[in-house]
Design a protein around this nucleic acid. Structure first.
Lengths: 195, 195
DNA sequence: GTCATTTCTTGCCATAAGGCAATTCACTTC
DNA sequence: GAAGTGAATTGCCTTATGGCAAGAAATGAC
């Protein structure tokens, strides 16, 4: 397996930590390469989530509200760890689906393997925790945006932070991610463009 | 130090894990008892967050938006680990304040000590991760509520999940926590009461 | 108790976002 | 390039929420 990019991702995530080769070997042994074609699912509702370090591509996470409408909960792009936190760590069946918006490449593992590394490889502990913290912080910021920003501000923010996604995701999916309807997003875009 | 309640909280958090007495001792040595009076701050903006296992009491987390208005980001009650994730784990100055709504009691530690335990006490790793995951999941669910529930539904949800808070927090703080103004909350409450 | 202060509620009107249906646009297929 | 499909936009109207100011209620100081 070509593990170069996996190793690079791990080192980038914990730059203050030196990892010896033995530790790296233990880690890379627990991952397998995985490719998804556009439209393929990384995770389906009801299954337990795995842990995917994505090196290339775009993914969308979605679930359904009580009315049965699709709600996009996240977008993922390259150099991001992808997992549904409750399902992966607490062993629950996932309420989310993860679908590839483009061809995706990366490294995959499951909870048992990851947990083994977590306890036996100190550097991996740091890595795992850093990833969890980073994702947590991102969600927290998003909640706060929902509280004190308008739809248009959230839209502007998304354009700035993840412009590519507009190329791969449908606007109605971006709309539900932003917490508005596709109709409103369309109007927000018109307003925004005219500025 | 009376560590009974601390030990109880740790065991409750990872019920599937047996902890030996040596591990427990290592853990309890790293915490100190802490009491806050009503109105006292556990964390002030700009400082680095600590880690507080709260056994008794109620806390409120808040920050400010661009207009300088207070935004309540969380309420905490007994048997909860309290920390600002970005500040505590990433070492950043906190953007949040944590203030006691009532007298609070619990156990306190800092990042250095916690990180030491994280690497040296396997049970504490499990505990630390479980806490992080639990808080993360809660935030995630809150974000999704913001997306697909009305203010009234979120209000009803809060009443059900944390009724006590209405006794200790001001309505304007609950309002900003729910993502609405105090005026709107007042109307939501009138509607809700009439049902 | 009375006064002062803060919190909460209400009325009135403004703005943001939603709902639905019709239309336009973009993309595929033949 | 015509027809068919699904996505996105638009028009028209409704509903949810906000803003502000006035009043009511609760709280605290003396």
């Amino acid at each position: 397996m070509n593990t170069e990019l996996l190793i690079h991702f791990i080192k980038e995530t914990i730059p203050h930590f030196k990892i010896d080769d033995q530790g790296l070997l233990k880690i890379t042994e627990c991952f397998e390469e995985l490719e998804l074609e556009k439209g393929e699912y990384l995770l389906k509702q009801g299954k337990r989530s795995g842990y995917f370090i994505m090196i290339e591509g775009y993914l969308r996470a979605y679930t359904f509200n009580e009315k049965g409408e699709e709600i996009t909960t996240s977008f993922y792009s390259a150099n991001r760890a992808v997992f549904e936190v409750a399902s992966f760590f607490q062993g629950l069946p996932s309420e989310e689906n993860l679908i590839a918006l483009t061809k995706c490449k990366g490294y995959y593992t499951d909870f048992t393997k990851l947990n083994g590394m977590f306890h036996s490889v100190p550097e991996f502990r740091e890595f795992g925790r850093a990833v969890l913290v980073k994702e947590f912080v991102a969600y927290k910021q998003r909640t706060i945006s929902m509280i004190n920003k308008s739809a248009e501000e959230r839209y502007a923010q998304l354009i700035q932070s993840n412009k590519d996604i507009f190329q791969y995701a449908q606007l109605k999916h971006i709309a539900s991610y932003l917490g508005i309807t596709d109709t409103s997003l369309s109007r927000v875009r018109r307003e925004f463009a005219s500025k």
